[in-house]
Write a protein that binds this DNA or RNA. Structure first.
Lengths: 74, 74
DNA sequence: ACATTATGTAAAAAATATATTACATTCAGT
DNA sequence: ACTGAATGTAATATATTTTTTACATAATGT
């Protein structure tokens, strides 16, 4: 895939606001804690559904959880 | 994963507006045409990066390409 | 000092997205 | 009637995400 940008996310910030631990988020979404850790550290590229579920949990838009930083902006 | 919604998308509409074929989109994004077909038919759950690349191509927000329809709304 | 919770890391297995190839069908243009 | 472009479907192979399990460390409360 041609990649015009790189993924970034605000997961730890959003977690802190709500006072959720990684484990809390994992359980609320129904994935493993490892998945949350990996996403939080930008280790990989989650599925769109997972992104929407995270946005739903934190009651924000997908773009507030994940940012696609265009390479030309770096 | 707990799924509060189902994915829907406007790919064929956006393609039509721009006059792009599936092949065009596949080539512009750098994925196979099969991937575009499968996403368009809601056969699966693309990666977030791919969703962002599609939004970038069509010059719209991710939410204009993909909608997460909450099950309570169905 | 001890127990508990939160976080970070890692490796292997399982699940799923994506690639590749091939073929069928429909439709527009000639 | 023919050709080429666009779309739909399917099977297998490959790549990547996600799970599972386990262990290490730091921080907090008792």
């Amino acid at each position: 895939m041609i990649e015009h940008g790189v993924l970034n996310n605000q997961l730890s910030v959003l977690r802190a606001k709500k006072g959720y631990s990684q484990k809390d988020v994992a359980e609320k979404i129904g994935v493993s804690r490892q998945t949350i850790v990996s996403i939080e550290k930008n280790k990989y590229n989650p599925s769109l559904k997972l992104a929407f579920e995270l946005a739903y949990l934190f009651e924000v838009e997908v773009e507030e959880v994940f940012q696609y930083i265009l390479k030309e902006e770096l």
